[in-house]
Nucleic acid binder design. Structure first.
Lengths: 203, 203
DNA sequence: CAATTCTGAGACATGACTGTCTCATTTGGC
DNA sequence: GCCAAATGAGACAGTCATGTCTCAGAATTG
């Protein structure tokens, strides 16, 4: 029985991350409360969805703060970000699946701020020679967030043990994102070779 | 103006992959036809969604067929799968975001068959020493599909050039999934070290 | 123990989307 | 140019979820 707003939000995430179109009935039952009480806590469905999205973005922003992505080695910063964001992976899964949120301008702005922070981290890592420059920072940002969401879905469905989550995410993503100090790309790309030039953001 | 069923389905994917709750009106407008004609082509919304999902699964199954994932080097097989599945990345994005599909048993079965084929490819690669065994084949399967979906979203939103898609996916994913022939893991995992034992499926 | 507050269950009206229909218009074939 | 088929626009009822209300019962507080 969860009468707290935050507790209800947590329960709502559990339902909405898998079924974004869940009715108020389902959300209320998932939280162990009645539909009436749910409406007493949140003005309506829109407000509830919006608050869940806001919670997710705030948690992800807090993870970026905790990881202190602007300091030190870019690889170490990303590892800190992995550890900080995996506990809220389910919220990220909700954010990835709920594209209806982007109708609200404030949510959209907050989202873009966090993506910009991710982008900046990858750009810095590329300029420092830590991350590969053949992959655009935008793609690295997108892929990282998608994998965090994938972690959330996998854990929720019982396909991934929570203890393995951070390790699995860090090893898979960093393996593909880090420049190899010794070995070059295992095979030269046979398809289209994007001759990407190292980007700069601070002119 | 798209009067063909397949053309309408393609247009529907474009809308539904981003807004899974789009109304019939929006889908019809996206296809350039009226709501009446849309209803003449498909019995109802459920049938339309179901056919889009079926199309996505059939395309992904066809990609697995084309790639011939059971033959030859596992890495080469995965590279073939990347090339074969990237053109249908938007459909995979739809599949990843539309969890409501899994109420239909036939769709669910077809889905699990394809995931099993992916899983088998990664398991084989692990047994042949091509893919890392510290990451479970289940996680590799999930991550691969999530990244294909991410490719689809990125292309649709104009954040990734279609020409770079296959390269970006293959390099990022294979970099994290392949065993490094010479260099070991850049940093020994400081967090929890899952002492995974190499799995077997054919006893 | 009594009073207050909060919750759950249900009823109710509202609104939105869906599915079906009709009819005028257009398209395409002959 | 005529006829047939198909399309678009709109109207219509049905359905479902939402949001609000009331009331009885439970929990908490004094």
């Amino acid at each position: 029985m969860a009468t707290d707003r935050d507790t209800v939000l947590e329960a709502a995430v559990g339902v909405l991350s898998r079924r974004p179109t869940a009715h108020m009935d389902e959300i209320a039952r998932a939280a162990g409360i009645s539909r009436a009480t749910l409406h007493r806590l949140f003005p309506g469905r829109d407000a509830l969805i919006r608050e869940v999205g806001l919670l997710g973005l705030q948690r992800f922003a807090a993870a970026l703060d905790t990881a202190d992505t602007g300091a030190g080695d870019a690889e170490a910063a990303l590892r800190r970000l992995v550890d900080a964001s995996v506990p809220d992976a389910m919220l990220c899964a909700f954010l990835a699946g709920e594209n209806q949120l982007y109708e609200h301008d404030d949510i959209n702005d907050l989202w873009e701020v966090q993506i910009a922070r991710l982008h900046a981290l990858f750009l810095r890592g590329q300029q420092e020679g830590v991350f590969r420059i053949e992959l655009s920072a935008a793609w690295l940002s997108e892929a990282f967030f998608d994998l965090v969401a994938g972690i959330g879905w996998s854990i929720q469905d019982g396909r991934l043990a929570p203890r393995e989550a951070a390790f699995s995410l860090a090893e898979l993503f960093l393996g593909g994102a880090l420049r190899r100090p010794d070995a070059r790309t295992p095979h030269p790309p046979a398809h289209s070779t994007p001759d990407r030039k190292p980007e700069t953001d601070t002119p």
